[in-house]
Every structure is written in structure tokens, then in C-alpha cells.
Amino acid sequence: MRPLLALIAAAAVLLLAGSAGAELVATAGYRLKTVHVPGAAFAGLARDGASLLVTDLAGGRLYRRDENGGLVAFGPVFPHGPDVIGDPTGPYRAARVDSELIVAQGWKPTDADEDRLDHSLVAIDAAGRTRVISNDFWNPFDFVAADQGFYVVDAARNSVEHVEPNGRKKTLISFRRLPQAADTLQRLSPTEFEAGSDYEVDAVPTGIALYKGRLYVTLFGGFPFLAGAGKVVSISTGGASEARLEADGLNAPVAIAFAGDGAMLVLEHGTYDQKQGFAKGSGRLLRINAATKNRSTILDGLIRPVSVLVWDERQLVVSDLAGSLHFLRRD
């Protein structure tokens, strides 16, 4: 194990905004500090008592960040490596649920053999033993715990699934493909898309949150990841044939959380260029007013962000694939 990732003193890596290679801009009223770990690819964030729980796709590990700022690896090494499009796959999300840690493990890395933990929802007990709750997924990207099990987004199946503790699974909704404006596609590639032609992309559900009895889901939108094609929708916990639109015009939204006042916090992965991929520094954390739907940017300039966590009424945490944890504290 690399010593740098095994244990990191906060004083050694607590950096000013922008030090990890992007010009980060926090809105007025927030103070920003960034912890950067070279070689890491941080993904899931959750609170585990007084500790911050973090998943790292680069090493397939779970980490705890204690009150003193140290990052300590624990538990098993999960399957990890590049997926079919070259992005990292591994333990996408983790959360404390009663006496166990629950992990959403992504699909099989392209350069690895089949593993029982691939594309699964996994429980880890206090002794570090793993138990597969269900591996009947294609790419479980995020989940939220509920009284009768878990609500899981399967990004590859374009669905939201309800999974009981015994592994029994029920599909709550399968998202339809998202139609795209023909003129937008024609401007993107005039030789590939003719003017006036129709085009649809997969919905690609990513983040999920449970708020006031409804499930809120970010729809990332499939390739070619058009600017403004992403959405946030909601469904009842009992399932629905149609989802209710909550926000649209988003740039690859990847995660969602709710502030104490009910505002939606939506994390945009960024804008995409077919030659260069997702533009460096194009990720944003947005705040969307529940009543008026007005939007404001809390944090701009992120490099491929993945998760947002409401730590308490004053502090937010954002992770990214560039190996950074961003701590936003309201003055």
C-alpha cells in the first residue's frame, strides 16, 4: 500500500483552493479548503460518526478521515481499474447503515477477472467480512438506505431498483431515452448528424437522494454528453411509470443532496468535448431553490466531481476523480 494514501496528516496536505490544478471559485459566504492526494480518485462520501467515509477508485479502498484530518484505509480491496470507456470503476459509494457498511461496487474492470463483488451491493460487518446483498446489477452507481432495504440506481440499466435486505429486487422505474435537439447535434458534428435528424441518448441515472417521501435522481445523459442535456427527476418510493421533472438544462449532473432548508444541491460533472473529454474545471456545485427553482453556483472550477455531502448545517464536502476533497464552510 502506498504510504501517502495509508495515512495523511491534514497539515501536510491542506491546500488553498486551486492548488490541485484548477481555479476553484466559491460563492461569497463560503470558505474553501482542499485536501489533495496525488494518484487518488475519490468518489463516495458519507458520515460515519465523527469520521468522514471516503471511497477511492484508484486503489479500490475505503478510507476514514478522522477529526485530526488523517486518512486511514480499512476493509477489503475492492475490484478496481479502468472500465470500458477508460474511466475508473470500483467502490463508487459507501455508507454506514446500522452496524454494517454498505458499498455500491461498480462493474467489472476491463483488465480484471470476474469477481464475486463485481456490480454488487455489498455489506461489510465489524470484523471486516463481506457479504453480497445482491449482484444482480449492471452498474450500481449510488444508493440510499430505507426502512425496508435500499434504493439503488443502476446507471447501465437506466433504472432505479428497490433491494430488500435479503437481496430480493424490484424495479421501480426504467428511464426512457432522452431526446436531443437535432440542431445541437448538427453543430456538434455536422458530418455525423444531419440537420433535422432525431437523436436520443440513454438517461444514465447517477445520484440519488430520499427527501420527504420521494426519490430524487440525477440523469447524467449518455454520450455525447451534450451541455444542458442533464436533468433531475423524482419518483415516489413505491415506483412510477413516469418521473416528475425537478430541474433540467444541467451539464452531466452526477450527484444530489438536500440542504437543511430544502434546497437541492446538484453536482455537475462538467461539459464534454469529443477530443479532450470532460473539460478541466467545468464541474460545478449548484444550489436550486425548492420553491422558486432559482439557481446559484456554490463552487465552480471543479475537475470531474463525483459526490456532495451535507456534513452539517454549515459544511459541505465534495469529492473528485482528480484526487481532491473540497470542504466548504459557511461563514
Score class of each variant (00 low, 15 high):
309 L>I: 05
307 S>Y: 03
309 L>E: 02
241 S>L: 15
312 D>N: 13
232 V>P: 02
274 Q>M: 15
270 G>H: 07
302 L>W: 06
310 V>C: 07
236 S>A: 14
272 Y>A: 06
244 R>D: 15
260 G>K: 06
290 A>L: 14
259 A>M: 12
262 G>V: 05
288 I>K: 06
235 I>K: 09
255 A>V: 14
237 T>I: 09
297 T>L: 04
242 E>Y: 03
286 L>Q: 10
269 H>V: 02
269 H>W: 15
275 K>W: 10
232 V>M: 02
257 A>W: 08
254 V>L: 08
271 T>S: 09
257 A>F: 08
251 N>C: 09
271 T>M: 13
256 I>F: 06
312 D>P: 07
293 K>M: 04
290 A>H: 11
287 R>G: 07
302 L>M: 11
237 T>S: 07
301 G>A: 01
289 N>F: 04
274 Q>C: 07
233 V>T: 04
300 D>I: 01
311 W>T: 00
250 L>I: 11
276 Q>F: 11
263 A>S: 14
276 Q>W: 11
248 D>V: 15
240 A>R: 01
248 D>W: 13
266 V>K: 10
235 I>V: 12
288 I>Y: 08
258 F>L: 05
283 G>F: 15
273 D>E: 14
302 L>K: 01
263 A>Y: 02
279 A>Q: 15
257 A>M: 04
283 G>R: 10
300 D>Q: 08
288 I>G: 10
313 E>G: 11
230 G>Q: 00
311 W>V: 13
305 P>R: 00
236 S>F: 11
303 I>D: 12
309 L>T: 06
272 Y>T: 10
282 S>R: 01
276 Q>M: 14
295 R>D: 02
262 G>Q: 00
293 K>Y: 01
261 D>P: 01
258 F>C: 01
289 N>Y: 00
290 A>Y: 04
310 V>Q: 03
308 V>K: 09
265 L>Y: 06
306 V>Y: 12
252 A>F: 12
277 G>P: 00
297 T>C: 02
300 D>F: 00
286 L>K: 13
291 A>S: 06
243 A>T: 07
293 K>W: 03
295 R>E: 09
245 L>R: 04
237 T>M: 10
291 A>P: 00
301 G>L: 05
244 R>K: 08
270 G>Q: 08
244 R>G: 03
306 V>H: 08
231 K>C: 07
307 S>Q: 12
249 G>Q: 08
284 R>N: 14
305 P>A: 00
298 I>Y: 03
279 A>E: 15
285 L>D: 03
274 Q>W: 14
285 L>C: 03
